[in-house]
């Protein structure tokens, strides 16, 4: 997997799928449409400020609420290279793996990293580095089964490889 490096957008607990991509935009399933409304109800200027490679950091239960895959699709299509959180809601976690949005659980990183920090993530080792502060953290690596899905490029390719 390619490593991630970018500027951090920091949020708190329970960032739900309604604020990641409000339902009023779910009449579209086009990733580029969805990206233009990403995080709109929690951070109105996110879309203007985000650049390719940037990283979202949040604390507990990121992605709670609806099963809409549109949420990780919107984040990925907005250019975000990785989401770091203390914990993820389980459907969001599955969806991210299935569509190939890198996510990593790390309570220490989620607590310490600040908004606007420059951060890099090495997915093979699970090492998260806050370049701004010089701190490093060890995130939880994916179990081998999930690694296989990610290495295959998502669930679609995984199913095709087995066929």
């Amino acid at each position: 997997m390619e490593n991630a490096k970018g500027k951090v957008f920091k949020y708190g607990d329970n960032v739900d799928t309604d604020v990641i991509i409000p339902a009023r935009y779910l009449n579209s399933s086009d990733p580029s449409d969805l990206a233009t409304h990403c995080m709109e109800d929690i951070d109105k200027t996110f879309v203007e400020r985000v650049s390719k490679g940037d990283i979202i950091v949040a604390t507990k239960n990121f992605g709670c609420g609806s099963s809409r895959e549109h949420a990780p699709i919107a984040i990925k299509a907005a250019g975000v290279s990785c989401v770091i959180a203390e914990t993820f809601a389980r459907i969001f976690y599955r969806n991210s793996i299935n569509i190939g949005l890198p996510i990593i659980e790390c309570a220490e990183a989620a607590a310490a990293i600040g908004d606007g920090d420059e951060v890099s993530v090495d997915f093979d080792s699970g090492i998260i580095t806050d370049i701004t502060t010089g701190q490093t953290f060890k995130g939880q690596a994916f179990p081998p089964f999930m690694q296989n899905i990610i290495n295959a490029g998502g669930l679609v390719n995984y199913v095709n490889d087995k066929a």
Partner: peptide
Amino acid sequence: VGSTDMAA
């Protein structure tokens, strides 16, 4: 689950 899981 999400849509990709539904597809699979």
